[in-house]
Simulated scan of single mutants.
Amino acid sequence: MATFPGDFRSIVTLQPQVSTSQLLAELVPPREFSQATFSTYVPHTEFPSQSQARDKAKAFAEGKGSRKLFGRSESESVGIYLDGGFGVGKTHLLASIWHTFRGKKAFGSFISYTSLIGALGFAEAIVALSRFELICIDEFELDDPGDTMMMSRLINELSAKGIKFAATSNTPPNALGEGRFAAADFQREIHGIADKFQMLRIDGEDHRHRPIEQVGKAYSASEMEIWLAGCQKAATALDEFDAVLKHLSTIHPSRYGRLLEGIEALGLVNCHVLDNQVDALRFVAFVDRAYEAQLKIRATGTPLTEVFSASYLSGGYRKKYLRAVSRLGAMTE
């Protein structure tokens, strides 16, 4: 790694340990949405579905509703599903549901829940999550048959206990899995999930205005040095890109967020295009946690918005990678 002045922290030296109580305590909206409300969600007039989704989400959070949907009123629905592209305010609305709902509630990304199951085991995860009355799932994605079956079973078992769900995704539930695996083999599980949710489509453009075709920026060593000089050393980490990727392989994804505690700025040195999809998907999970923590990131080598190859961006996990590119664009601006 290039030599930079200053004594900065390193995330590759950390081996965070997380207890069950800590994992559950972290199921709250990320800092960016800690104050999100329905009143601060500003729908675009040219996309009526945005205001419609806001109103229906608010009614769901308040337990209101009268129109029959799937043979029951909206207020009696097991869940609400906010479907739309990047940057249309889905997570803002999901956090608003969480803040408005009166009762015990959990908020986490899809990987937060799969990681919780991985850390505790399915039976213990069911016990742990049964304490909540509402579970919010951000970026609901099914990437393989195992996840399909696991999340279907999780929702079915918890909904039988009277627990409600709110979720966001870039794919309608009845199309989950398409382009990723043989969806027909799991159609029953996929449709079983879809039938439990009010379907709300949110149209619009990415409010972050960062198309994936944008040309990212890679910083020179001197530019990185200048940036680091303006950062608070105690809240800044500096690491080799490959060292971070290797370290992520040794840690359960449920602990990625712990690597970033107390860090506000992260410098990554010698970034490059990823040629291992396992590393790429781990980095996506790390990017999600970094985005939630509202980190500022700078990199030397390949621009971070370009570390995912064209084949990855057009493959079965494209939605994960495109979301990561959008979020990396936000953190590197």
Rank of each mutant, 00 (worst) to 15 (best):
T114C: 06
T114P: 11
S115A: 12
S115Q: 08
S115Y: 06
S115E: 07
S115K: 03
L116V: 14
L116G: 14
L116H: 09
L116M: 13
L116F: 10
L116I: 13
I117V: 15
I117K: 00
G118K: 05
G118L: 01
G118V: 07
A119Y: 12
A119H: 13
A119S: 15
A119L: 08
L120G: 10
L120M: 09
L120Y: 10
L120D: 09
L120T: 10
L120R: 11
G121I: 10
G121A: 11
G121W: 03
G121M: 08
G121L: 06
F122K: 12
F122T: 12
A123M: 11
E124S: 12
E124C: 12
E124V: 14
E124P: 13
A125G: 12
A125K: 00
A125F: 00
A125V: 05
A125H: 03
I126T: 15
I126N: 10
V127H: 10
V127E: 05
V127Y: 01
V127S: 14
V127K: 12
A128D: 12
A128N: 04
A128Q: 07
L129G: 04
L129V: 02
L129Y: 04
L129T: 06
S130W: 01
S130Y: 03
S130N: 13
S130G: 13
R131K: 15
R131A: 13
F132L: 00
F132A: 00
F132T: 03
F132H: 02
F132W: 03
F132I: 00
F132M: 01
E133F: 09
L134W: 03
L134V: 06
L134F: 04
I135F: 08
I135H: 07
I135L: 11
I135C: 04
I135N: 02
I135K: 05
C136L: 06
C136V: 04
C136R: 01
C136I: 04
C136G: 05
I137N: 09
I137Y: 02
I137G: 09
I137K: 03
D138K: 04
D138W: 07
E139I: 07
E139G: 11
E139P: 10
F140R: 08
F140I: 11
F140G: 12
F140T: 13
F140K: 09
E141G: 12
E141Q: 14
L142K: 14
L142Y: 07
L142S: 04
L142W: 11
L142P: 11
D143E: 15
D143A: 15
D144I: 13
D144P: 14
P145F: 07
P145Y: 06
P145L: 08
P145N: 05
P145V: 08
G146Q: 15
G146S: 15
G146W: 06
G146D: 15
G146M: 10
G146N: 15
D147Q: 13
D147N: 07
D147L: 02
T148P: 02
T148H: 01
T148N: 02
M149Y: 14
M149P: 08
M150N: 07
M150P: 06
M150C: 14
M151Y: 05
M151H: 09
S152G: 13
S152R: 05
R153M: 00
R153Y: 00
R153Q: 07
R153E: 01
R153W: 00
L154E: 00
L154R: 00
N156Q: 14
N156Y: 05
N156F: 02
N156D: 10
N156S: 15
N156E: 13
E157K: 09
L158K: 00
